[in-house]
Amino acid sequence: MSLFVAAFGFGLVSMSVIAIAAVGFTMQFGITNMINLAYGEVMISSAYVAYYLNKAGISIWIGMVVGALFGAAFSFLLNRIVYAPFQRKGTSYLGMVIVSLAISLMMANLLLPIVGYYSVSYQEGTGGLIRLGAIILTTNQILIIGIAVVVMLLIHGLLKYTRLGKAMRATSANPTLARNCGIPTQRVVDAVWLITGALCGLAGVVAALNSDSFAIANGAAFLITILAAAVLGGAGQPYGAMIGAVLIGLITELSAAAWSPEYKEVVAFGVLVLVMVLRPQGLLAKRGAMAAAG
């Protein structure tokens, strides 16, 4: 029994990591209509940026900020240079998925000669252990949970209480109408890529910090978990992604305790399949996956 309570503790950490990543992913999709399959690779690139800073003797917490900035800048440029021109050209949703998959493949293989095949890890003490009953977490893990809570609150504040957030929701609901109402949708989209890119970079560093070590191959595994959380919550729905992250984080950690940690992604995939069969629109969305593609 205490094994499952301990797994619940890890679940809290993993849902925090997944939530940061999945909210960014789902906002990209919801507002810019882009299923960005290169998301996992941007995460891992940011993790490596923080790794090299960390190796040079800089604290990982500063590395985390730089990683987030890198993710923001990279995602912004990726959209400006590749995705936006293709979308303007009228490439279909499917064409965009193929383009983003090609980008993901190129990124992974451009990184490979630079960073190598081997797993690396941050030089950072895990901090002291903190016990809450049977739940034992490191200080770093507590900090990760704290970061996630703050980020979620910031996103909530952004969407509900700022003009930019309102403009984002309007652009998400109907880009043409939003433009006709005088909302500068181009600038809103740029802002979305910067913000979600920062979330992506932050999530990459946080995920790498949470696992003992990471390697280039982790990008695909990240992507699967994020997809599962985003689809479960209803793609394009930031609050849905938060709920999805909570569920996927708990389910994968509990299954790892009950069964085998090798199959974490398989369990996430199982959830994804169940959602696609039983409720393809996700928990929150009204249309989501069932809406007709353009």
């Binding site: 299923i35 399959l37 949703y93 499917l94 965009m96 998925v97 193929i98 998959l101 695909a220 699967i224 997809l227 689809v231 793609a235 085998s260 090798e262 199959y263 992604e265 398989v266 995939f269 994804l272 399949v273 696609m276 393809p280 996956a289 069932m290 809406a291 007709a292 593609a293």
Partner: peptide, 24 residues
């Protein structure tokens, strides 16, 4: 039921997972 871009990502994920399962 799925929209065509969801079909694509579902199939991509299937490909990664099938490989993981057979490997393990």
């Amino acid at each position: 039921k799925l929209r065509s871009d969801y079909q694509a990502i579902a199939l991509l994920v299937l490909s990664v997972i099938a490989n993981t399962v057979i490997t393990n």
